[in-house]
Write a protein that binds this DNA or RNA. Structure first.
Lengths: 154, 154
DNA sequence: GCTTGACCCTGAAGTCGCTAGAGGGTTTAT
DNA sequence: ATAAACCCTCTAGCGACTTCAGGGTCAAGC
């Protein structure tokens, strides 16, 4: 199987497959005489595993660890649970901040209904008001920044 | 005002301010004889505007366009609304996919309660089943991919 | 036999929004 | 006089790709 066929079979882009190989997520396949990659059936399975984990938004490092587990049947799967728990925590934190964000944006969006001159635009006024530190539609009264100096991946 | 003071006044990191200048979001300030950046009061306002928009998770390109609007009072603010609407659409799409993701992960997490050998791990089994195209706890029956070939920023 | 087009290859650079590091100079306080 | 705190530029790194430049290979149609 050539890389284009693997791409079609798994729904992963050709370039992305080559990228996965480069970073060690996918094993280097055999080569044909002309230098083309020659994949076996097992490559589809491994690639689908990766694709599935990616739709679950896992990082490539986590996926690599999970792949290692699938080839070590006697290992303790505690780490699998732990990895998933940590991922869930990240996802829930992101979800929470997105929910807040959505509310703020929706509120802000209601500000411009009147004029069509930028000078009269309630949205811009609101955003500028924030620059003065006044209360605004999107941040009625907040003090926390959360800008820069962030440590964790979102 | 030197860059450190501006950073303190706005809560934006010094490096980030220099970065904003490099990409043209913040105007290049005057310089003191020793080469230090010398900011006026207006810099605080502009920087706060940026900071506020960033907490609303807007991209730097969008913020630049909004900044341009604030200096063109006679422009039609239709584009401001439009920009915000598009941003809201992006945020809501991301929110939707995150909600689905959270459900899938939570369901997947319940799969491993029994053994502690990787071979018996329900989570890994589930993930591998997905590689075979079987129904799994996290994707009971789906067909859409959403992997690669994505166009828009998430 | 020759061109066209679809496919394949490598390696490097670009994306986004920072962050960090190297390797310096300047100012301020003790 | 010296140390700490600040400032400068330039460069590279992060994650997960994507895109580009500049090629090689192969089957089909003229």
């Amino acid at each position: 199987m050539r890389i284009g066929e693997l791409a079609k079979a798994t729904g992963i882009d050709v370039e992305t497959l080559r990228y996965y190989e480069r970073v060690g997520l996918v094993q280097r396949p055999a080569r044909q005489a002309n230098g083309y990659r020659a994949y076996g059936q097992d490559a589809i399975e491994r690639a689908n595993f990766i694709r599935h984990c990616r739709t679950l938004d896992m990082g490539l490092g986590d996926i690599k660890r999970l792949l290692d587990f699938t080839s070590k049947p006697d290992a303790d799967c505690f780490d699998v649970n732990h990895l998933l728990d940590e991922h869930l925590v990240r996802v829930r934190a992101k979800l929470k901040s997105l929910r807040t964000l959505e509310k703020q944006l929706a509120r802000l969006r209601t500000q411009c209904d009147a004029g069509h001159r930028a000078a009269d635009c309630g949205i811009l006024q609101d955003l500028v008001a924030a620059a003065h530190g006044e209360a605004c539609a999107c941040h009625p009264s907040d003090g926390n920044s959360s800008l820069s100096k962030r440590k964790a991946r979102e």
